[in-house]
Amino acid sequence: MPSSTSSRFGLQMLWSVSLKEAGLLLLISILATAGWWASNSDRLPLRAEAAVYELELEAPLLTVAEALEFYEEGVHLFVDTRSETGGETIPGALFIREATFDDDLLENFDFMFPEDALILFGGGDLSRTSNIAGRLKARGYENLHILQGGLSGWQHGGGDISPTNNGAES
């Protein structure tokens, strides 16, 4: 009996020590995650956007940090898909909107070619931007990306903004 009591005591001690250590390690992990998340400018939002995961997007998503790099390189064309611009957009962006898709495409005929690398962005509505990406793909545009977070994500990430200059204001 004494040996069984002592082994039970040993087991209790082992669990007690293990749980204390595990709690401490989890606390450190949570603090490290919070610190890493707070210091990362291109961080994952805490709240998942269902559309990102549920939609079969017509083009791959691009993070703001990646889009900013492409913007600096100046090779990619930015395409604003918002129906209402609020008077500002990414500098140099062309407008292709759902309601006026064919007219907009015609208007940009001399500036936007099927071989161009395009970054589409909206006001955060991924389904609309994805629809436009699908329609562009049907017209032969293959090199397409969708900016995650839209224009507000771009602004939040420190991207340049300029007034719209082609009469596309809301």
Partner: peptide
């Protein structure tokens, strides 16, 4: 969905630490 991003952030850090 509400726990998706917190899990994606926390789990790798737990693995590492």
């Amino acid at each position: 969905m509400a726990l998706l991003h917190p899990a994606a952030l926390l789990l790798p850090m737990v693995e590492f630490v």
